[in-house]
Nucleic acid binder design. Structure first.
Lengths: 252, 252
DNA sequence: CGTACAATTGAAACCAGTCAACCATTGTGG
DNA sequence: CCACAATGGTTGACTGGTTTCAATTGTACG
């Protein structure tokens, strides 16, 4: 029962796959003709499958083409903390660059397709093509910034504000332009949302219910439809911007 | 009234400054003879001075040589969230790589000396010297990992656990080997600690007082002495490792 | 159809936040 | 030199948002 999420990429044609492959419009603007990369492999994941485990050997980055992944780290006493959800167009594994072993785990939350990008290859190409090196730098620092805004979220927002920001963020990553009526596929469980937002699953459920009652959103099994973007933005503590102003697309 | 923190670096000699300069043993193991970098400038900051402001032009990374910096981001409604404290040996500014403008602000919490590393120079050198490129990658991903463990801290730990982890982390970054009696200089205010840990200053104060009462630590104006590392580690939810086992030195 | 898992909802407990008073330290200017 | 203001820190009482515990319903899948 895969919730299909539209691909954000338009770019070049992948070596092995017919369809356009993500590397094109990753959030940094790196555009490559992927035919330059014959090493490129595609990988299919079913819901629940792990792409890699923490402490497994690190070799590749993965560009998400469809579906959704969760990335998580574990506490010493076994609890799981999800550090991010990765959508089509995102690059997974940046936190393990330069390490032998992965620092986190990645699992498919939904049926998912990824392109495997062996890091050694990227690194080699980066050596000769400055544009690629620069793009990698941008991706890495972009990941840092995204986590910084999550730090802000976890450090100083209340449950309702967190959820509101989460919904807006998700929505803006799927549709580049968020407006009333926008539907968001949310294949993850309440517990996973809670893990990411630093809340218990009951709190997530309650808060979503409240927003539903208030008419701000409409909750349907594994998805949400935004009814009143402006009110949602206000709940999130964000400035309410005029219609059609889709300024920052990412990284807040 | 600067709380002087010992330098962690041993490395090469900096172009302009007599003393060894940090680039040497930044957490990634990058060792460079900094005489290769005539562009290298040193900068002195008094307590409270800003090294850069969010949205100011990004040009350089900064290696901390002595003192301490706080890096923070701002909410749209003006609140400040500290995303990290930077000690001697740390590299500041990685979150802005690839951007025109800084994504965060950095201010000296104490009298501080930094080495300015123009990013364009690093990038150029990285092009020809693979070791430098690889080192930059490692730094960037290391920063991601550090923030991930902070996410974990903010997302799933209670006040006492957060403080305990914070103290252990600080201590391990100053002395590579933490043991009973280790003293930690903490030039930042309770409010700043709270901002970083997602707590209010009163909670920080109360929790430190409690740990003091319990005999786990000793609190002295702007510093802390660890009395019982094992109990502190247990409070932090970490495994208590046998004496002298200083495994991971960083990135948790 | 029934089991397993996910989600919802209620009531009670609790941790951290808020409000407020007070103390200590530092630095300034009369 | 002392008075005073300003800042930072500590502590107490109270409030409130989240968690915890528990019961129930809903949904997916063999």
């Amino acid at each position: 029962m895969a919730t299909h999420v539209a691909k954000r990429c338009d770019a070049a044609v992948c070596g092995q796959c017919e369809q356009p492959c993500v590397l094109g419009t990753l959030q940094c603007g790196l555009r490559l003709d992927l035919r330059e990369f014959p090493e490129l492999k595609e990988r299919q994941l079913a819901r629940g499958d792990y792409l890699f485990h923490a402490s497994g050997a690190f070799e590749s980055l993965y560009a998400v083409r469809s579906g959704m992944l969760k990335v998580s780290v574990l506490t010493e006493d076994g609890r799981e903390q999800i550090t991010g959800f990765f959508l089509p167009g995102d690059l997974v594994g940046l936190d393990s660059v330069g390490l032998r072993q992965h620092a986190s785990s990645a699992a498919a939350i939904d049926d998912t397709v990824v392109c495997e990008l062996p890091f050694a290859v990227l690194e080699r190409h980066g050596q000769s093509v400055p544009r690629i090196q620069a793009a990698l730098f941008r991706m890495l620092s972009g990941q840092i910034r995204r986590e910084q805004s999550t730090l802000l979220l976890l450090g100083s927002l209340r449950a309702e504000e967190r959820l509101a920001q989460f919904l807006i963020d998700l929505s803006e990553r799927v549709h580049s332009d968020t407006q009333c009526g926008s539907a968001i596929g949310m294949p993850m469980t309440r517990e996973e949302i809670g893990s990411y937002l630093g809340l218990k699953l009951e709190t997530v459920s309650r808060t979503l219910s409240k927003m539903h009652r208030d008419g701000v959103i409409e909750v349907v099994k594994r998805g949400v439809r935004i009814r009143q973007v402006d009110r949602l933005r206000r709940l999130a503590g964000l400035a309410v911007r005029p219609q059609g102003d889709s300024a920052h697309r990412r990284g807040h």
